[in-house]
Amino acid sequence: MVAPEISVLMSTHNEEKYIKEAIDSILTQSFSNFEFVICNDHSTDNTLGILNDYGKLDNRIRVFDNTNKAGLQYSLNFGLKKCRGKYVARMDDDDISHLDRLERQYSFLEKNPSISLLGTNINFFDENGIYGSSRFKANPSIVDVWKGKTFCHPTMMFKLSDIREIGFYNQSDEVTRLEDYDCWCNFYYHGFKGFNLKDNLLDFREDSNSFKRRTNESRIKLVECMHKWLIRMKLKKSLNIFVLYEFMKIFVPSKLIQKYHQIVFYENQDR
């Protein structure tokens, strides 16, 4: 069997409400030479049934089912070991990829072999529709990546060989809900570079439930992870001011952070 150029990788758990939109946005891509690796992390709703139905309709879909809930990091690593493409494109189970996302990213990476990580800008949306957009740096430095908010996980496309080289995603509990930040830091630590396409090629679901999941525990883990990478990357100690900034968010109500987030990204949309 000839390997596809791209392996689209998705992990899902109990997302029967939105997963059809996410899957359809991949199956209708202008670029068609891909496989769709989907890891069901022991869903207890009808998610697995939906996946199996899609698998019968499109042979590019390969469904794997965890017999126990293992978590996102484990599911992504399991899926990566099943991927056969030159590139891996991440996708989340509640977001929507634009029609030409895969084509645009594939073309860029083929023309720019020095780039290992490729993201795009995004539209933020909730139950009321699109409310803003991102303005990620096109060519982030190692300090930018360390500060965070440089790449959006479900937009990322990277070389399968490169993520194998860095040891896949960290499965430690220390980076639960931070696996993407930790992974990008690890890429840069190993000398790989990333880039963001300027266009918005994915609609990113960010509603009130998204902010509720950002608990104080996860913020403390982020502070600890930033401190770890500050030391490993041998960055300036003066950058600890950004660690303090993240720590102070512990004392800010999630609704206030959500409101600030919406204002900032609404302004981005109008620029």
Rank of each mutant, 00 (worst) to 15 (best):
G79Q: 00
S238G: 10
F195L: 14
N121Q: 01
L9V: 02
L109M: 10
F108W: 01
Y106C: 07
S43P: 09
M226G: 07
V8H: 00
I6V: 15
V37D: 03
C185L: 09
H227L: 15
I61D: 03
L118F: 09
A22D: 03
A89P: 01
M156W: 02
E174W: 01
D162S: 14
E5Y: 03
K86N: 08
F151T: 03
F36R: 07
Q29V: 10
K237T: 13
E217Y: 11
V145Q: 05
F158A: 05
W229D: 00
K69F: 15
E5V: 12
F195H: 14
S25Q: 14
E16W: 05
N59A: 10
K149A: 15
F168I: 00
T67K: 15
K249C: 04
I23H: 06
N186Y: 05
L222G: 02
K212V: 13
Y189M: 15
C39M: 15
D173M: 00
H42M: 11
N68R: 09
I263K: 08
R62V: 03
N33W: 10
R177V: 12
I19P: 02
D92K: 11
F136D: 05
Y74E: 09
I50A: 06
K147H: 14
P4K: 02
D199A: 12
S161C: 14
M233I: 08
T12Q: 02
L51I: 04
N112S: 05
T215I: 06
F158L: 11
W229H: 05
L109Y: 02
S75M: 04
I231D: 02
V63N: 05
Q269M: 15
L99E: 11
T150W: 00
D94K: 13
N66C: 13
I38Q: 00
A138S: 15
S254R: 13
W229V: 01
D162Y: 13
S133G: 07
R104D: 05
K193T: 11
S11I: 13
R135G: 08
D45Q: 08
S25Y: 13
L178V: 02
S161F: 12
G132R: 11
S97N: 13
L230Y: 12
L197E: 09
D93Q: 00
E103A: 12
I231S: 07
N59K: 15
R84F: 05
S172E: 02
S210E: 12
F242M: 12
M248N: 08
N66D: 15
G191H: 04
I166P: 03
V145K: 02
D180T: 00
E16P: 01
E174F: 01
S97M: 14
Y106T: 07
S218E: 11
Q29F: 04
G148H: 04
R213N: 14
N40R: 09
I257W: 08
